[in-house]
């Protein structure tokens, strides 16, 4: 029995290590590249720096492109759009699930927009944002990102709300609360882990979003971090070292967020049952 246990444990570890390597290898590569001497990057294909470590790429990355400004823009856009997404998605999904608002049409319509490739709507969205005079502003991008994430939030929150025993809400109505108060005082506290993990996912989606940011922003005032990264590909070729440094600088904040909420995220995405 003991042998069997050890054996299965070893298998488990091997699988875990294989997975971790697959997931972490690109990031390790990026981290290593950001510390290599620029010349080495072009000539050597080795994973780890051979010719010594330098912070030159990091310094240049921040000097050649206003990366700090872009990271700031990304932060503003990600946080604001996530808040707007949640503010709209939570009540919406609640009424759709509980009161069948929109019948069968609304939920499938919302999910349909999630399935559709975003490139399809770039032209109309650009036209709308331009009509509103919001092109090249953070507000414009925030609006587009929050709309973009609503189907995702909708889909993630659905099972949380379904898992709440409906009697809890009925009890609250009978106890004298309106439907909105019931959502606020009873439903929201129960789905809070789900709302948090949904928020983190939306944050990541917005942080990494490239297509809409590319067409809607064109000055440093509103460009976001993924657009910034693309700027290291210039007329004079690709600045791999600087790009790696910038990429890492952009990954770190979102990793910290995920790390802080990881307990919530795992708990939330894995299980979404609230027992009454």
């Amino acid at each position: 029995m003991i042998n069997k246990n050890i054996f299965s444990k070893i298998i488990g570890w091997v699988i875990a290590i294989i997975f971790l390597t697959i997931i972490l290898l690109p990031i390790i590569y990026v981290a290593a590249t950001s510390l290599k001497i620029p010349l080495e990057i072009r000539t050597s294909g080795s994973l780890f720096p051979q010719g010594g470590i330098t912070f030159e790429n990091w310094v240049k990355a921040f000097r050649n492109v206003p990366l700090t400004k872009y990271l700031f823009n990304s932060t503003v856009v990600a946080i604001s759009s996530t808040i707007i997404t949640l503010l709209i998605a939570v009540p919406t999904i609640y009424t759709v699930v509980r009161f069948k608002t929109g019948g069968a049409v609304l939920p499938s319509l919302i999910l349909g927009t999630y399935v559709m490739p975003p490139i399809v709507v770039t032209v109309p969205i650009f036209a709308i944002i331009k009509t509103l005079g919001l092109q090249d502003t953070l507000v414009g991008l925030i609006l587009v990102h929050s709309m973009m994430n609503i189907p995702l939030a909708f889909w993630l929150l659905d099972s949380y709300i379904r898992n709440i025993p409906v009697e809890l809400e009925h009890a609250a109505w009978v106890d004298g609360y309106s439907k909105f108060d019931t959502l606020l005082k009873i439903v929201y506290p129960l789905i809070k882990p789900g709302v948090l993990s949904t928020g983190v996912v939306c944050l990541i989606m917005s942080w990494n979003e490239f297509l809409f940011a590319l067409i809607l922003t064109y000055s440093d005032a509103s460009k976001t971090f993924p657009i910034g990264i693309s700027q290291y590909i210039g007329e004079h070729g690709m600045q791999f070292g600087e790009m790696s440094a910038a990429a890492l600088a952009g990954i770190i904040p979102i990793y910290i967020v995920v790390f802080i909420f990881s307990k919530n995220l795992v708990e939330g995405l894995g299980r979404s049952g609230v027992k009454g």
């Binding site: 009697e167 609250a172 009978v174 106890d175 609360y177 129960l190 009454g276």
Partner: peptide
Amino acid sequence: RPKERNIAMVFENWALYPN
């Protein structure tokens, strides 16, 4: 509406607010 009827209810699964 339920809140205007001044009724109280005891539910089958008791429906206590778990939070």
